[in-house]
Write a protein that binds this DNA or RNA. Structure first.
Length: 804
RNA sequence: GCCGGUGUGGCGGAAUCGGCAGACGCGACGGACUCAAAACCCGUUGGUAGCGAUAUCGUGCGGGUUCAAGUCCCGCCACCGGCACCA
């Protein structure tokens, strides 16, 4: 048979659609009695340029797993949707004058068409679009629940602001001092912003990791992101005024080594005691200098410590009673801990650098290093440390020190996180309006639940206002309203939510996408949750995943969902690089359009290639020749139709078939798609060597290959007389006993070097194996005249004879 | 700097528990088919030496354990990803 993919791919896609082949059965429906399998892939942002081959790889992994699980007898939910709010669409709208709604709809239509052309086995009745008002109604609902529970709050703060995009960014979106969207340098700006109190869930997010099956590096990244550290808060009195300066430290055991203190340039202590500080001019000048530095400069100058000593106020070590100077320096951040530290230059490299530069004493309290050369952070015996002297176990010293601080009432153990609260508002049009009313009498009042969705008002011009005001602020009919509580004239919040909002709960909406009464029916949530397997990119492991886990934990706490964790298992695919080995990008012009591949080679080839190109989790460059190799493979499979004759088993192929079924079955579950395909290629080569196979065997082959190349395999099934869809057929079973040959070729070594091979019966006993090996003339010759020291035989593997 | 990962032919990559390194695919070379080319088909393909059987070297580098190391241990190097003055 000719692999005439252009003719049959469309045919099978239509048939799957008509038969609703990939419909997921809700509880109570026929099919729901089967075990459920919820496979989730990160839904795309529908950009104007259409899908990327990277999307195809990202979806093909669980596409194959879920197709196989369906054939295994699972009730599979494999849905798709669109994360459509966000800046690129709005920027296109600003540039072209086309409304973001239209831009979004066009892009979604384009993506939908592409997804269908690839033949993904999706349940198309469950498509969600985060910009649909029936969707964002529930995004707003969750926000209000958080507001009700004190988790959404407003605060004036220095925020990361992108002057180019004109938006406030979260810490996550401005890493390295660069805007995540346009890569401009971000600046710090004082602004009233919305926060979600994600830090309150830090421990739950951390502890929850014990109950989920994420790839180890994914877990590790989340652990680092949350950044929990244990230590102590210690209150230092000030010598000149009745005031405490509170610091956070992970090393209370080094308290005897404190020779100075450092506070962040923004620390409130400075303004409070401005009149006591003799060198206030220098302090102010330094502070201004720091404010001017971008985050980037601040982190680049790590080794070059700067700072100013406060002249007029100093601290008192609560344990030793010694007077110590206080500096301001920008190596201490206001946003972590208390914005103040006790500096122990002998045992902290940053404090050491600073002390060296400013000529401050360095007092050793832990033996083991050379503090003249560098700070010593290792373990050792405590010295110069009063009651701590002689202790050499760090944990014990920390415990003793903390107890003492508590006894004296000057400190206590405490915990800190690197994770910060989530800056949750954006001053842009294309996002979910924050459903809050500002009333002059009642303050912030939530829009009543029954009034949701709070719709985005129609608009012609979407550019942000000067000074970074939301465009919504220009629409009087939207802004002016009455207070839902007291009826007085009031103003609406005009900021919108960040793009991460809609994607934080979309997997819940797939479960019940058309529900008008709730975000999803509890019975359905009970049935489908948690997501059994979630696959996506590494770049979303810290932001999107942490955000959505946070929302889910919250929803669990208010009884809206039945599980604490949303995702039982998480994996990640590797990037597809350009043919030049570089990341695909428009500017490099090394991108590949999946449409072109489908046009030239067919969807089955595209699907097979993205999974065959290498380790699924690793990056690999695109290679057009290898794509042709996959085409050749599928063509040769199609040609089997011409040689398949009769039924039953071909004896020479029986073991290879059982071996391959086993290999493919196991490899799919382990996401080792490349070796699964290689195994089928090997089997194909064996079939051609053999020159014949039966129609039953061809059907088995097609069934195995079906998750990868479903169009071709449906076609083969039809040619073989199959009436029902192969995609819904039963997954082939294998007989363990038939996965091994009756005899095995075993290597024979002399002194660890392979000299020959002998064919031995399966599980041949050691003695016999050695005897048979020795009977080989080459081995006999090698042993001749030498003393045999040792004989090793590992059944079915190897024989090694050690001689002298 | 810290955390995680990777390093194997010309290339992408295989290799359960330590047991024949290089599966599978690409490319290359040779052949067949063709007026010719493409496609398809057959064969060879880690390096070195040899007509050959074969020998010898070979999984980033240096040591070690073992009958046997890509795999385990110790010490390095390079690259990739994440975080980064986090007290």
């Amino acid at each position: 048979m000719r692999n005439n993919f252009k003719e049959f791919e469309k045919k099978w896609q239509t048939r799957w659609d008509e038969e609703k082949a990939f419909h997921a059965a809700d509880p109570g429906e026929k099919g729901s009695e089967k075990p459920k399998f919820y496979a989730l892939v990160e839904f795309p942002y529908p950009s104007g340029s259409g899908m990327h081959v990277g999307h195809i790889k990202a979806y093909s992994g669980l596409e194959v797993v879920s197709r196989k699980r369906r054939m295994d007898g699972y009730n599979v939910l494999f849905p798709m949707g669109f994360d459509a709010f966000g800046l690129p669409t709005e920027n296109t709208a600003v540039k072209t004058g086309v409304h973001p709604r239209i831009v979004t709809d066009n892009n979604i239509a384009k993506f939908t068409n592409q997804l269908r052309r690839v033949g993904f086995a999706l349940d198309w009745d469950r498509v969600v679009d985060t910009t649909d008002e029936d969707y964002y109604r529930w995004t707003q609902w969750i926000f209000l629940k958080m507001f009700e529970n004190g988790l959404a709050f407003r605060d004036t703060a220095l925020v990361n602001y992108c002057p180019n995009c004109k938006v406030v960014l979260s810490n996550e979106d401005s890493q390295g001092g660069k805007c995540d969207i346009c890569h401009s340098d971000i600046i710090q700006k004082s602004k009233d912003v919305w926060y979600l109190r994600i830090t309150e869930y830090a421990d739950k997010l951390l502890n929850g990791l014990a109950d989920v099956d994420y790839l180890p590096n994914i877990k590790q990244q989340q652990v680092n992101w949350i950044g929990r550290s244990e230590g102590a808060f210690i209150n230092f009195s000030l010598a000149e005024v009745d005031e405490k300066l509170r610091v956070y430290t992970t090393r209370p055991d080094t308290i005897f080594g404190v020779t100075f203190m450092v506070i962040a340039p923004e620390h409130p202590l400075i303004d409070k005691y401005a009149d006591k500080i003799a060198n206030m001019d220098a302090v102010i000048a330094y502070r201004e200098e720091c404010a001017k530095k971008t985050e980037f400069e601040r982190t680049q100058l790590v080794k070059d410590k700067t700072g100013v000593c406060l002249d007029g106020i100093s601290g008192i070590n609560p344990i030793t009673g010694k007077n110590i100077p206080i500096y301001i320096a920008d190596y201490v951040m206001m946003g972590y801990g208390t914005g103040a530290i006790m500096a122990v230059p002998a045992h902290d490299s940053r404090d050491w650098d600073f002390a060296r530069k400013f000529g401050i004493d360095i007092v050793e309290v832990i033996k083991g290093g050379d503090i003249e050369k560098e700070a010593y952070a290792g373990d050792g015996e405590m010295v110069n440390s009063g009651f701590l002297n002689g202790i050499s176990v760090k944990a014990e010293a920390i415990k003793r020190a903390t107890e003492e601080l508590k006894k004296l009432g000057v400190g206590e153990g405490g915990v800190q996180y690197k994770m910060k609260d989530w800056a949750f508002n954006r001053q842009r049009y294309w996002g979910e309006p924050i459903p809050i009313v500002h009333c002059p009498h009642c303050g912030m009042v939530p829009v009543p639940y029954e009034e949701l969705p709070l719709r985005l008002p129609p608009m012609e011009e979407f550019a942000p206002g000067v000074g970074g005001e939301s465009p919504l602020a220009r629409i009087d009919e939207f802004v002016n309203c009455t207070c839902p509580k007291c009826g007085a004239p009031a103003k609406r919040e005009t900021d919108t939510m960040p793009q991460w909002a809609g994607s934080s709960w979309y997997y819940l909406r797939y479960i019940d996408p058309h529900n008008a009464e709730a975000l999803a029916d509890p019975a359905k949530l009970d049935y489908w949750l948690p997501v059994d397997w979630y696959n996506g990119g590494m770049e979303h492991v810290t932001r999107h995943m942490i955000y959505s886990r946070f929302w889910h934990h919250f929803l669990y706490d208010i009884g809206a969902v039945p599980t604490a964790e949303p995702y039982a298992k998480r994996t990640a695919q590797g990037l597809i690089l350009g043919a030049d080995g570089e990341k695909m990008s428009k500017s490099r012009g090394n991108g590949v359009d999946p449409n072109d591949v489908i046009d030239t080679y067919g969807a089955d080839v595209l699907r097979t290639y993205v999974l065959f190109m290498g380790d699924y989790g690793a990056a690999a460059p695109w290679n057009e020749s290898s794509v042709r190799g996959c085409k050749r493979f599928l063509d040769r499979v199609a040609d089997l139709c011409d040689i398949a004759k009769g039924n039953g088993v071909t004896s020479a192929l029986e073991v290879p078939f059982h071996k391959t079924i086993k290999k493919v079955t196991e490899d799919i579950e382990a996401m080792k798609f490349n070796t699964a395909i290689a195994a089928m290629m090997e089997l194909l080569n064996k079939i051609y060597d053999c020159g014949t196979l039966t129609r039953d065997e061809l059907l088995t082959f097609a069934t195995l290959l079906c998750p990868f190349a479903p169009h071709l395999c449906e076609e083969i099934n039809e040619i073989l007389g199959g009436k029902s869809l192969l995609s819904l057929a039963k997954w082939p079973a294998y007989d363990e006993a038939k996965t091994v040959d009756a005899s095995i070729e075993v290597a024979v070594q002399i002194n660890g070097k392979v000299r020959t091979t002998v064919v031995l019966p399966l599980n041949c006993p050691k003695d016999e194996a050695i005897a048979l090996a020795k009977a080989d003339e080459r081995i006999a010759a090698a042993i001749e005249g030498k003393t045999v020291i040792k004989e090793i035989a590992v059944p079915n593997k190897i024989v090694n004879i050690v001689v002298k």
